[in-house]
Amino acid sequence: MGDQISLRDAFGRALTSLGSIRDDFVLFDADVAGGTGAKPFVQAFPEKVVQFGIAEQNMMAAAGGFADTGIIPVVTTFAAFGTMRAHEQFRTAIAYPGRNVKLCCSHIGVDVGPDGPTAQMLEDLATIRAVPGVTVVVPADANQMLQALPAILDHPGPVYMRIGRSPAPVITPADSSFNIGKASRLRGGNDVTLIATGVMVARALAAAENLASDGIEARVINLSTIKPLDKEELLQAAIETGALVTAEDHSVLGGMGSAVAEFLAETHPVPISFVGVRDRFGKSGEPEELARLFGLTAEDIQKAAKSVIVRKKA
């Protein structure tokens, strides 16, 4: 665990490197390229950018139409606008006809920091994963982002990808491939499984280290595709460890933890503790302060792990 690189910087880097080798996509921007991380691409390839101004509903439905002409729109904006303001346009003009559009949104979770609740999108996974046929991807670090962008471009149909804003530790090797629909096991252990996504993966790894010093061996899974779920990996975790903690920088209502619970409730129910924002709006503050305020730290994951292990034994 060394460098700290924000996912949006990695997104900009990934876009720019692909810009010179691929001709099959364009960037759709709603005057927030500086915020989403797309700015370097906009500067390097102005001819590959379609500008919509602050009008996300039009941008979203237009992306549906544009995709019909054979070029992939990479639609970028803040998650609040992409997954809520223009949600119906995404649903009806993109997902329903199965159009090849990649919606990449920054400003997710309390990771956003000082901008506060209006920009801290805590409901995007819930609103987007409810839409049929949509693939939902959440890279955990800069290395994953560099691999995830070409992977989603190669994956036909509508995809939603979360882009983090604040500096995040690099935790995966640069050469690991990004397979949509595949979770990766970052640490072995059979006492409990910590299933984390996005910036919470690094915290889950830290939690597992601390748990080990208390004699608890925690398995850590990076769930970087929320839809479709890696059912095999989740089932194995439920069977072999018998207790799970899910950790996400998102509301516990309808997010990744809910997706995991929905699947396991029908296949192999085990106790689950949900680490996430508990039915609240965000708040201004620094990301680390907010993580403490909303219960999203490595310590919170450790606590959840210990309590779920008690429930497993009960």
């Binding site: 979203m60 439905a61 237009a62 139409g65 019909d68 729109p73």
Partner: peptide, 10 residues
Amino acid sequence: SQGLGMALGA
């Protein structure tokens, strides 16, 4: 909007 997207794609 969808028509606009198609025209821009053209």
